[in-house]
């Protein structure tokens, strides 16, 4: 088992002919994951790493029964590409693009909500389920096995880079991940930590959920509320980076755009305290995190 990705995922890449997208296509195929189709208006009939390219997503869907897409297009084109995905009945849409205008994000999320489609991102590095050798996006790079091996840990991270570092920490501790999700560093994202905690809750393979958070937003506070409301949940281990930002003047942004500390909201120490009070384990360093993982799973 896993969340979001499994053997039934039929993946297409919108914007497959771009530099990053074709590199990701190559890495993904090498990992053993399949990409059924690519879309790029005007380049239908070509192939990228052997994957057929179509002019429209509608044709790709007719030919391959696509249910999952990655949006590899520049910020200005993201809204339109997501609308195309939603209109073609895609259920899971991953957006790696950074710097999508906020008003576009608001619109595309309203659209996805009304159609019941799930968005992961924007500014997400992707999703990986090692047991199925399924991956979406750049996550894991050219060597996913270096960090991501199959195991019982569900991983949620606001930072793409830290998704790999935390998975590696879990691996060093002697375990692996069921699914790792880079949810995106923006304040406006389609799937929150709380949403994914719910999904991991229903996943048999997952025995422990590990979360890496950052300053700003109320994601951690919302997660704490969810955890404290239900004591039967799977164990949750959290680390919130950026405690140093609390020494800085208000209004400073560190890390992702969302990391804005305003008054008391958004402070890592407050988030950690809330999560601890709600019953989650908290780690101050990655070394501590490894120790916690062993303590829960050994």
């Amino acid at each position: 088992m896993s969340i979001l990705l499994n053997n039934d995922s039929r993946i297409a890449i919108q914007g497959i002919t771009g530099r990053e997208a074709s590199m990701v296509t190559r890495h993904t195929l090498a990992y053993g994951s399949s990409i059924m189709a690519g879309v790029r208006p005007g380049k239908g009939g070509q192939t990228v790493e052997g994957v057929p390219v179509y002019d429209t997503l509608a044709t790709a869907c007719q030919e391959h029964g696509i249910n999952t897409t990655i949006i590899y297009v520049p910020p200005a084109a993201v809204y339109d590409a997501v609308a195309e995905a939603v209109h073609n009945g895609i259920r899971l849409i991953n957006i790696p693009t950074e710097n999508v205008p906020q008003h576009d994000t608001i619109k595309l999320m309203a659209l996805a909500r009304s159609a019941g489609a799930r968005i992961v991102g924007p500014n997400s590095l992707g999703i990986i389920s090692p047991h199925h050798r399924a991956k979406l996006g750049a996550i894991g790079g050219d060597n996913p096995d270096k960090c991501f091996v199959p195991g019982p840990v569900g991983l949620i991270s606001r930072s793409g880079g830290m998704t790999a570092e935390v998975a590696w920490t879990v691996k060093q501790a002697g375990y692996g991940v069921s699914t790792a999700v880079s949810i995106g560093g923006d304040a406006l994202i389609g799937s929150s930590p709380r949403d994914l905690m719910e999904l991991f809750q229903a996943d048999d393979e997952t025995k422990l959920v590990v979360y890496f958070g950052e300053p700003g937003t109320t994601f951690e506070e919302d997660l704490a509320d969810y955890v404290s409301a239900d004591k039967e949940l799977k164990p949750l281990l959290c680390m919130v980076g950026g405690r140093f930002t609390e020494q800085m003047p208000e209004g400073t942004v560190f890390g992702h755009a969302a990391s804005l500390i305003s008054a008391n909201a958004g402070r890592p120490s407050v988030k950690m305290r809330r999560l601890k009070e709600a019953g989650a384990m908290v780690a101050v360093t990655l070394d501590e995190m490894a120790a916690h993982v062993q303590a829960v799973l050994d």
């Binding site: 830290m162 890496f212 950052e214 980076g241 950026g242 405690r243 140093f244 560190f254 890390g255």
Partner: peptide, 28 residues
């Protein structure tokens, strides 16, 4: 870099008694 790791490193340097002269994120 990227965003998250920069936060972790800055914290870790301070934790170890060091004084970073800057914050930075270089990634992507």
């Amino acid at each position: 870099g990227g965003g998250g790791a920069s936060l972790v490193l800055f914290d870790a340097l301070q934790h170890a008694g060091g004084q970073p002269a800057n914050y930075c994120e270089v990634g992507g």
